[in-house]
């Protein structure tokens, strides 16, 4: 299998005043073509930041301090000091965002926004691009795509907007897609349909997806492999079936126990232990100290 994305010993820090606060601590990740890889962790674990490094849309105060990201579909390498990322290469990667309500430009019609994206990769008369946009909307199972193209984002529901954003993400035929909690802002019934849609489109195109989420249920349904993150480190990585059946890290076990199950009494539901949390944070601090010596 072709390797699409390789993250090697990646360290990222945020500059706050004179200090560098570590955010990612030695991330290693390999995604072959066609793999759907779940990236799981609680808020502040660094999942989104990892996604942003790969997309090269870091905030200006974030610094890659060591390691690098190689992306085959964009032909780019991101490492400390320099980023090589040609605008043309951008069509090799795209993002499905978390919040469909704020991710479309509110003052532009859907059709205009889609055509503008298509213009980046395709040349051709506006008419052809318009038809291409229509076909894309039909592919994400939007009924009456012609009418949706003429509408503004606020005319559409959250689920519809997420479908539009998915169509936009797939429109440049990217080799890899970063999906950053794409269903968190949607209600449960819409969530399922959107997940199935992403899965179907992924299968048709054999796209590699890095699926960022904090929902282990979604990972179980959608992903081939999974990485568990905490404090900017990957604690456990492996095939979903293996990790879910025989978790090796105590944090993973604790997370899996925290999933509510209808077939078990409520008493068995245990929150992630606080001492385990602080232990993980201590480990992260020790790691930082050792690196500085």
């Amino acid at each position: 299998m072709t390797k699409i994305l390789a993250v090697r010993d990646l360290h990222l820090a945020m500059r706050t005043g004179e200090k560098l606060v570590p955010v990612l601590r030695g991330i290693n990740l390999n995604l072959p073509q066609g793999e759907v890889h779940g990236l799981v962790g609680e808020s502040g674990a660094g999942k989104t930041m990892l996604g942003r490094v790969i997309l090269d849309i870091l905030p200006p105060n974030a610094v890659v301090t060591a390691g690098h990201v190689d992306c085959a579909t964009t032909g780019s390498q991101i490492k400390s000091g320099g980023r090589i990322f040609s605008n043309r290469g951008r069509s090799g990667i795209s993002l499905i965002p978390q919040d469909p309500m704020t991710s479309l430009n509110p003052v532009k019609k859907i059709g205009k926004q889609m055509v503008e994206i298509l213009q980046l990769a395709h040349t051709g008369p506006p008419r052809a691009l318009q038809e291409r946009a229509e076909a894309l909307l039909a592919e994400v199972r939007i009924k009456k795509p012609k009418e949706v193209l003429k509408q503004y984002p606020h005319h559409l529901s959250g689920g519809m907007r997420q479908r539009v954003l998915i169509a936009m993400a797939f429109s440049s035929e990217p080799g890899i897609i970063i999906a950053d909690e794409p269903t968190t802002a949607l209600d449960v019934s819409v969530q399922r349909r959107v997940l199935r849609l992403i899965r179907d489109l992924q299968k048709e195109r054999n796209t590699t997806i890095l699926f960022i989420t904090h929902d282990l249920g979604v990972v179980a349904k959608l992903c081939d492999k999974v990485s568990l993150m905490h404090s900017g480190m990957i604690l456990e990585q492996g095939l979903v079936s293996e990790v879910f059946h025989s978790p090796s890290h105590p944090y993973t076990r604790s997370l899996l126990n925290a999933i509510p199950r209808y077939d078990q009494p409520r008493e068995k539901l245990a929150p992630v232990a606080e001492d385990l949390q602080s232990q993980l944070i201590d480990e992260a601090r020790k790691y930082d100290q050792q690196r500085q010596v």
Binding site: S94, L95, P97
Partner: peptide, 8 residues
């Protein structure tokens, strides 16, 4: 942010 990922 999305516009940036697209390379505008």
């Amino acid at each position: 942010t999305l516009a940036r990922t697209r390379g505008f």
